[in-house]
C-alpha cells in the first residue's frame, strides 16, 4: 500500500502528524498537496522545516501531487498524504490518485462552519467535497491521533450536518 495515511487537516504539517502519526506509521515521505503553499517558497520552507530529518517531505500543487502519488506507487514508497481541506482531497481523487481511505484529522472552527465533531467543523463546501469522496467509493473516518477514538463519517453524518447548515 503506497498511502500509509491520507489525512485532511487544516493545520497540515504539525505535531499530531509528524510525531503522532509519523512515529506510528513511519512513512518514507510526507506529501502536502496545497497549491498556495507549493507556489510560495517561504511558506513551503516553514512547513517543511517541521518534518523530522528521517522523513522526506514534498509540498506540491494538487495536480502535481496526484502525479507524484502515481510515481510513489511504482517505487513502493510509503506516503503520508496531507491536504488542508476536503475539497483538495476530493480533487486528488478526481485526478486519479489511488486513495481508498481518508482520515479526517482536524478541521477547526471558522466563521460559517458548524461542529460535526469536537475537532471537525464543516461548511457547505466541505460537505460537498466529503460527499464526493463517499460517492467515489472512498472510506471516511475521523480520528485525531493514533489510538484515539475513530468516528465514522458517512451519509448519515453528512445529512445531519446539511440540516444544521
Amino acid at each position: 500500500m503506497t498511502i500509509a495515511l491520507a489525512r485532511i487537516d487544516d493545520r497540515m504539517i504539525h505535531g499530531q502528524v509528524t510525531v503522532g502519526w509519523g512515529q506510528q506509521l513511519r512513512p518514507d515521505l510526507i506529501l502536502l498537496a496545497n497549491n498556495a503553499i507549493a507556489a510560495d517558497a517561504w511558506q513551503a520552507r516553514v512547513y517543511a522545516s517541521s518534518v523530522p530529518p528521517e522523513i522526506a517531505v514534498e509540498i506540491l500543487s494538487v495536480a502535481e501531487s496526484a502525479a507524484r502519488l502515481a510515481a510513489a506507487e511504482e517505487s513502493g514508497e510509503r506516503v503520508l498524504l496531507l491536504t488542508g481541506s476536503p475539497g483538495e482531497m476530493s480533487e486528488l481523487v478526481r485526478l486519479g490518485a489511488p486513495i481508498e481511505q481518508v482520515n479526517v484529522g482536524g478541521l477547526h472552527f471558522a466563521a460559517g462552519k458548524q461542529e460535526m465533531l469536537p475537532f471537525v467543523y464543516v461548511d457547505r463546501q466541505d460537505l460537498i467535497a466529503l460527499d464526493r469522496l463517499l460517492k467515489a467509493g472512498v472510506g471516511l473516518s475521523a480520528q485525531q491521533v493514533p489510538g484515539g477514538r475513530d468516528y465514522p463519517v458517512g451519509d448519515e453524518q453528512l445529512e445531519r450536518m446539511e440540516d444544521l447548515l
Binding site: 493545520r11 504539517i13 504539525h14 505535531g15 516553514v46 517541521s50 518534518v51
Partner: peptide, 10 residues
Amino acid sequence: GGSCANAAQL
C-alpha cells in the same frame, strides 16, 4: 515543528 512554530514564523 508544531502548529505554533509554523504560525509564528508565518
